[in-house]
Amino acid sequence: MSDTRKHTEVAVGILIRQDGALLLSTRPEGKAYAGYWEFPGGKIEAGETVTEALRRELIEELGVTIGEAHEWKVTEHDYPHALVRLHWCKVFDWSGGFEMREGQQMAWQTFPLTVSPVLPGAYPVLDWLEAELGVTGA
């Protein structure tokens, strides 16, 4: 098995409200998997740390500025359009109003999720979060 594709490094933010709800947003039109629900984030540019990339992406996409990002897990997912390495960060602190600057939708979710479809690369993380946070029924 010789996959010569390079990984695309991606910073992903798991924004967690005080009540345990998680922020998901839809992928914008024109992007692969448009309309699928995902945790916000984006590509890490050359010279950026995971936190710097996440901070930049969330300002660009959502109009919010995050506080500290807690790097949590790293996963990989092989999509038909890209081989990605996802750097998952938990974020408990942010400021600004959510603006959805790419025309996407957003939803605060608890388990079980009520939005679908969800981007396939998020499933392992959702399982871990559900085990950690538990079913709230909210």
Rank of each mutant, 00 (worst) to 15 (best):
V115R: 13
I16V: 15
M1P: 11
A32Q: 05
L133R: 08
Q105C: 06
E38F: 06
F98K: 00
Y36W: 15
T136Q: 09
V84S: 06
H77W: 15
A69I: 01
T110S: 10
M1G: 13
W37A: 03
D93K: 14
A21D: 11
L133N: 03
G134Y: 13
C89Q: 12
D19T: 03
R17K: 15
D78E: 06
L86Q: 03
P124H: 14
D93Y: 05
F111G: 01
K90I: 00
E38N: 03
L119D: 06
A11D: 05
T75F: 14
G20R: 12
S25A: 10
K6N: 15
D3L: 13
P40I: 08
T49A: 02
A34T: 05
L22S: 12
Q18R: 10
K31I: 00
L129Y: 09
A32K: 12
P40V: 10
V64S: 05
G121Q: 04
S116R: 09
G137H: 07
L15R: 06
G63D: 06
Q18D: 13
T110H: 15
V84R: 05
E132M: 14
S95P: 06
E99P: 09
T49D: 10
L58V: 04
V125L: 15
V10F: 03
M100F: 08
K73T: 13
L22G: 07
D78R: 14
H7V: 10
H87G: 11
I59H: 07
E132P: 02
H81N: 08
Y33L: 13
A82F: 04
T8M: 03
T4V: 13
L22A: 08
V125K: 07
P28V: 03
W37R: 00
E99Y: 00
E130F: 02
G13E: 04
T114K: 10
E130I: 02
H87A: 10
G121T: 01
G67H: 08
T75C: 02
Q104N: 12
R27A: 09
A11L: 13
E45P: 00
A32Y: 14
E60A: 14
T65C: 02
E99M: 11
A11Y: 12
G137C: 04
R17A: 14
W94L: 01
G134C: 11
D93Q: 14
G96E: 05
L133C: 03
I59C: 09
A107K: 13
V125Y: 11
D19G: 02
H81L: 01
L58H: 00
I44S: 08
G35A: 13
